[in-house]
Amino acid sequence: LQAFIKTLTGKTFTVEMEPSDTIENLKAKIQDKEGIPPDQQRLIFAGKQLEDGRTLSDYNIQKESTLHLVL
């Protein structure tokens, strides 16, 4: 599935991932794409901060969901 990552500066980019991917995997993909170390990334979806060990499906993240990236 493709999801949108929106930063506080208003920049939006897309990442490809599977519902079974962990938040940790997602942070690694963001690092590959944007060069931001995972330990500096905080991802917010539906008002909740996402925990590394959980999966996208745990948070009911669907295709074309928008996640907010806070540094």
Rank of each mutant, 00 (worst) to 15 (best):
K6P: 02
L26D: 00
K33Y: 08
V70F: 14
M17S: 04
L56R: 00
L56Y: 03
L67Y: 03
D32R: 11
L8K: 11
L1H: 05
D21F: 05
D39W: 13
Q31W: 15
A46Q: 15
K48I: 15
L8E: 15
S57E: 11
K33Q: 13
K11W: 10
R42I: 15
A46I: 06
Q41D: 01
I61A: 04
V15W: 02
D52I: 05
A28E: 09
E34S: 15
D21V: 03
N60Q: 08
L67C: 01
S57C: 04
T7K: 04
D21W: 11
E64N: 15
V15L: 11
E16V: 12
V15M: 06
K6E: 09
G53D: 12
E64G: 15
G10D: 04
K29N: 03
L8R: 12
D58H: 08
A28Q: 13
L50T: 03
I44E: 09
I36M: 04
K29M: 08
I61M: 07
R54D: 07
P38R: 14
T66L: 12
K27V: 01
N25A: 14
I5M: 02
P37Q: 06
T7L: 14
S65T: 11
L8M: 14
I44G: 02
N25Y: 11
Q31A: 14
L26M: 06
E64C: 09
K11Q: 08
K29D: 01
P19Y: 13
Q40H: 13
L67I: 15
T12A: 07
E18K: 13
T12Q: 08
S65W: 05
R42A: 07
E16A: 09
L50P: 02
I61N: 04
E34T: 15
F13W: 05
Q2V: 15
I23D: 00
Q62F: 10
T7W: 06
N25F: 12
K29I: 10
F13M: 04
D21I: 05
K29R: 11
V15C: 03
I30A: 00
L50H: 01
E34I: 15
L1K: 06
P37T: 05
D39S: 14
F4A: 06
T7A: 05
K63C: 06
G35M: 04
E51H: 07
I44K: 05
